[in-house]
């Protein structure tokens, strides 16, 4: 697979403090990559560097082989960006916001209604942005990001502060983009979201990547307990060692139709983050 994003030895400073500390990773084309970390970990700074909004002090970042800092207008057309610092025109309607964005790209009214429909805002197309709820505003920002059918979508905490139903809708939209072949780079502090959406994740703490890989692999790697919890139908909880000999006992429970649930004891990403950094995953 081609590499959509490549980062090598990237560092950045704000004054004396090092906000990004010598990080390297790659994102394959068509994958969803999640950058996880608490507030202030450097997630937004990294997106700003990747999208060429900020010049890194050291190291290099490439988008489809092109150095971020050297991207031109043509290269930018391959990017869709949804960030808090990417505002919408509040007095303009949803439709006109998208139309303006499309006019800047030199297109005229192409698939605006289809995109609004896909994010569930077709009925609100004449509504001014200032009158939208936070969830609707986020969906409109998402619509703007995908309007130009980008090859890479940068989503900075796309579901932050939203209710579960809207979060679910945004997740569906992200999967729809992935199905279209779009590479998605998202930042989040929601571990559940990362496990659900991402093919690969990186845990970021104080500007450093402390763990990298697929969520399932990372959880398996940190499964120090290696136990199996069985909850039986009679209410009894049984804890077995994660080894070959336990198989016969599990089979016995299973054949006797006694099993209610079986769980392995892989830790959650949140627990792993705490183990690695000694920090609670605060938002």
């Amino acid at each position: 697979m081609n590499k959509a994003i490549e980062v090598k030895g990237l560092s950045h400073y704000f004054g004396p403090s090092r906000v990004i500390d010598n990080i390297s990773f790659a994102v394959e084309e068509g994958n969803i990559f999640g950058l996880l970390g608490p507030s202030g970990a450097g997630k937004t700074t990294l997106i700003n560097i990747l999208t060429g909004q900020l010049r890194a002090a050291e190291g290099e970042s490439r988008i489809f082989g092109i150095e971020s800092r050297h991207m031109t207008g043509k290269d930018y057309k391959q990017l869709g960006i949804m960030m808090d610092n990417f505002g919408l025109y509040e007095r303009m309607s949803c439709y006109n916001n998208l139309r303006f964005y499309q006019m800047l790209d030199g297109n005229q009214n192409k698939n605006i209604e289809a995109v609004l429909k896909s994010v569930g805002l077709l009925d609100a197309k004449k509504t001014r942005v200032m009158n939208l709820s936070k969830g609707m505003t986020n969906r409109l920002a998402f619509a703007r990001a995908v309007l130009r059918k980008p090859r890479i979508l940068f989503l900075d905490e796309p579901t932050s502060g939203l209710d579960p139903a809207t979060v679910e809708e945004i997740h569906k939209m992200i999967f729809a983009e992935k199905d279209r072949g779009t590479t998605i780079f998202l930042t989040t502090h929601n571990m559940y979201e990362a496990e659900k959406l991402c093919d690969k994740i990186a845990l970021l703490n104080e500007g450093k990547i402390v763990e990298y890989g697929s969520p399932a692999d990372i959880c398996r790697r940190y499964n120090h307990q290696r136990k199996i919890n069985i909850h039986l139908k009679n209410g009894q909880d049984v804890v077995l060692e994660h080894k070959k000999e336990s198989g016969e006992q599990i089979k016995e429970y299973w054949d006797g139709d006694k099993v209610e649930t079986i769980h392995s004891t892989e830790p959650s990403l949140e627990t792993i983050f705490m183990e690695l950094t000694g920090r609670i995953f605060d938002i």
């Binding site: 909004q53 930018y76 800047l104």
Partner: peptide, 13 residues
Amino acid sequence: EKNTLRVLQMCNV
């Protein structure tokens, strides 16, 4: 203030 200037910048304006 509303961060729309940044959007224009990213559209190569």
